[in-house]
Simulated assay, not measured.
Amino acid sequence: MNLSKKLLFMALASCAALPAVAKDAQVGTGETNGYRLVWQDLFDDSELRPDRWNIEVNGSGGGNNELQFYTDLDRNVRLGDDGKGNHCLILTAVREVYNGKQFTSGRINSKNKVAFTHGKVEAAIRLPKTANGLWPAFWMMGNDFDQVGWPKCGETDIMEFGHIDGINRGVQDRYFNGACHWGQSWNNHPNYARAVTYNYSLQDDEYHIYTCIWNQERIAMYVDLDKYPNAAPYYEMTIPATGDTGAPGYYFHKENFILFNLAVGGNFPNIWDAAGITALNAGNGNQASMYVNYVKVYQKGTADESLNTLSPGDEQGGASVGDVVAETEIAFDGNTVAVSVPSTICVYNINGSLVRSACGTEISVADLQGGVYIVKCGQATKKIVIR
């Protein structure tokens, strides 16, 4: 091989080694309008973190007559490369007979592991083609679900695709909705949903950021604020606090956990038979995936906010999000725990159960039963005795 040919071969080999496309940045919409990043999962680990997420395993139909069986199998729920250099959460729906169902898929939640009250929460999601029959969602429910059930826990649907109206109009790639559900019983649950048809496709094999800003006054939802920071919300509902159990403000001022899932069929797309699920076909090997590049929670550190996590968020800029440097000081005056750096303060009883948490610089413990407690704030730990 002469020198010119050898150099050409080396150049081609070098080009072949480069990724075909650039990896998407995991910066989100950023720390805007006073919000500070307090927790995130970048899904860059080799496996889903069990201290952050629960993988649901059931074929209950989700209360919506869905057709899939949710599994914890790698083919349905895993972390991996999306084919574009992004390591992310991958939820895959597969046409296969499994435990009496015609499909399998994935659903995860952060119940009792990551929960927060008020803030800005967002996720970068790359959607499959939903036509027809796929129903991807990014949503939240009250962390008191185990105690009060649904709908008393409250439900906030930040993003749902695949509705029958989008199918009928032939606009599934841009027709989606936000919604809130609440109430005292299954037979009495008010809700407010709002669907929109965007002027560009959101199923274009690219990531789009879905953001929910939730505070004492309202819940508002946006898409692609990173590209269009002045965009109007596609969903908005006011939630003034109230003691009226029929009003939304009674249900939406408590800690919520996060959910991602990819449902198949059911009441939302109005498809209840396997033959109607044309989104899973021979052309895609009878499977399709929803990719989540990251999920982030931002807060302002106000008294109405809380953040309750079993572990700090992923690193951003060299330090764990939500973590605090070792020099953080914890003080206790008999009634109040105070910390020197604003962050998440967690109080545990002697059995290791979380009994109270808050985001900020102090938390009152005056009403707790007397005994020994452990206070944790990032890397700092202090034993306190309440008398």
Rank of each mutant, 00 (worst) to 15 (best):
Leu7Met: 09
Cys15Arg: 00
Val21Met: 07
Val21Leu: 08
Ala22Pro: 00
Thr32Asn: 13
Asn33Val: 09
Leu37Trp: 09
Val38Ala: 10
Trp39Met: 06
Phe43Arg: 03
Phe43Lys: 00
Asp44Val: 15
Ser46Lys: 12
Pro50Leu: 09
Arg52Ser: 14
Ile55Arg: 03
Val57Phe: 03
Asn58Met: 06
Gly59Leu: 12
Ser60Gly: 14
Gly62Pro: 09
Gly62Ala: 05
Gly62Ile: 01
Gly63Val: 05
Asn64Asp: 14
Asn64Leu: 07
Phe69Leu: 04
Leu73Ser: 03
Asp74Trp: 01
Val77Ile: 15
Arg78Asp: 02
Leu79Val: 15
Asp82Asn: 08
Ile90Phe: 02
Thr92Phe: 00
Val94Ala: 02
Val94Cys: 14
Ile108Ser: 01
Lys120Met: 06
Ala124Leu: 11
Arg126Gly: 11
Ala137Val: 01
Asp144Lys: 10
Phe145Leu: 12
Pro151Val: 00
His163Glu: 13
Asn177Val: 04
His181Ile: 09
Pro190Arg: 04
Ser201His: 07
Ser201Tyr: 04
Ser201Cys: 07
Leu202Tyr: 03
Leu202His: 12
Gln203Trp: 02
Asp204Thr: 11
Cys212Ala: 13
Trp214Met: 02
Arg218Tyr: 05
Lys227Thr: 07
Pro233Phe: 09
Tyr235Glu: 10
Glu236Gly: 03
Pro240Arg: 08
Pro240Asn: 14
Thr242Tyr: 12
Asp244Met: 07
Thr245His: 01
Phe257Cys: 13
Phe260Asp: 02
Asn261Ser: 14
Val264Gln: 02
Val264Pro: 01
Gly265Cys: 02
Gly276Gln: 03
Asn281Tyr: 08
Asn284Ile: 01
Tyr291Gln: 05
Val297Met: 14
Thr309Cys: 14
Glu315Phe: 03
Gly317Tyr: 10
Asp323Gly: 14
Thr328Ala: 15
Gly334Thr: 01
Val337Gln: 07
Ala338Pro: 02
Ser340Asp: 06
Ser343Glu: 13
Tyr348Trp: 06
Ser353Gly: 14
Leu354Trp: 13
Val365Cys: 14
Tyr373Pro: 05
Ile374Asn: 06
Ile374Gly: 00
Gly378Asn: 05
Val385Tyr: 06
Arg387Leu: 07
